[in-house]
Design a protein around this nucleic acid. Structure first.
Length: 257
DNA sequence: ATGGCTTGAGTGTCAAGA
């Protein structure tokens, strides 16, 4: 069974890339972030024709998250229970007995800003929520755009980015809080090439110069980490015309799809 | 140089991303 996550930066613009990628990878589950559309603009029919069910938590212009799955998603939950939030950043569903939590974590804009404070509060609320979800679903994966580079290895220029947004110590501590509830970073379960990133700035030839950050992650609970056979970042879609600024992350597990 | 692209909104130009 293959599960994946991809910040598509507008599903309307990126749908052809998504359909091509699904056909190429045969992923069983794909979590999307930044769909940037309400439900009425969501391409349910095109995805159905490609063999995927879809559940969506959308809004106009910003945010928006979806889970695409070959099997029917059940027990769909939107947002973080008990956390008041206008922004549509979380959708969860059960697929093939796995709890899939898809999250678009706040960017934070700048360390010390109001948005940064919101980011840290939001991350704490999600960690509490995941701790609860694990009691019901021990087989859980938290996939998405974390907007956190967990380690200096995940940053093309750690000196320039030191204590900056996406790399600050409180953000990294928030990332570790997900590990503390029992999840593992699937990417780091395996040997990986150095300088592997999942996001590159559109400007200044960021991708060509590999000036990137690894901020998109798949975290797995212990029973899933035990059966995870690989995890990688697929740079291919970033090379296409009109790409998302993010690349998809995919993990495969020894579970019947 | 508070920029450098890209998107959505909406038709001039700004907010937001990371």
């Amino acid at each position: 069974m293959k599960i994946a996550t991809w910040n598509v930066n507008s599903l309307k613009v990126r749908l052809p890339h998504v359909l091509d990628w699904l056909a190429a990878t045969q992923a069983d589950v794909l979590c999307l972030q930044e769909t940037k559309t309400e439900d009425k603009g969501f391409p349910y029919a095109e995805l159905q024709a490609a063999g995927y069910h879809a559940v969506h938590n959308g809004q106009k212009t910003y945010n928006g998250v979806a889970i695409l799955a070959r099997s029917t998603p059940d027990d769909v939950l939107l947002d973080i229970p008990g956390f008041a939030d206008e922004q549509k950043r979380v959708i969860a569903a059960t697929v093939n007995g796995l709890r899939i939590v898809c999250a678009y974590m706040p960017n934070g804009q700048a360390v010390g800003s109001d948005k940064y404070e919101y980011k840290l509060r939001w991350l704490a609320a999600l960690a509490d929520h995941v701790r609860e979800e694990l009691k019901t679903w021990p087989r859980l994966a938290l996939l998405g755009d974390y907007n956190i580079a967990p380690d200096d290895r995940d940053v093309h220029d750690p000196v320039a980015w030191k204590d900056q947004i996406l790399c600050s110590e409180p953000e990294r501590a928030a990332f570790r809080s997900f590990l503390d509830v029992g999840l593992s970073d699937a990417f780091r379960l395996f040997e990986q090439p150095e300088k592997t990133y999942s996001w590159w700035d559109y400007r200044q030839m960021g991708f060509r110069l590999n000036r990137g950050l690894r901020i998109d992650h798949i975290l797995l609970s212990a029973p899933l980490a035990a059966v995870c056979g690989s995890c990688s970042i697929d740079r291919a879609p970033r090379k296409l015309e009109r790409p998302s600024d993010h690349a998809p992350v995919i993990a495969s597990m020894e579970i019947a799809g």
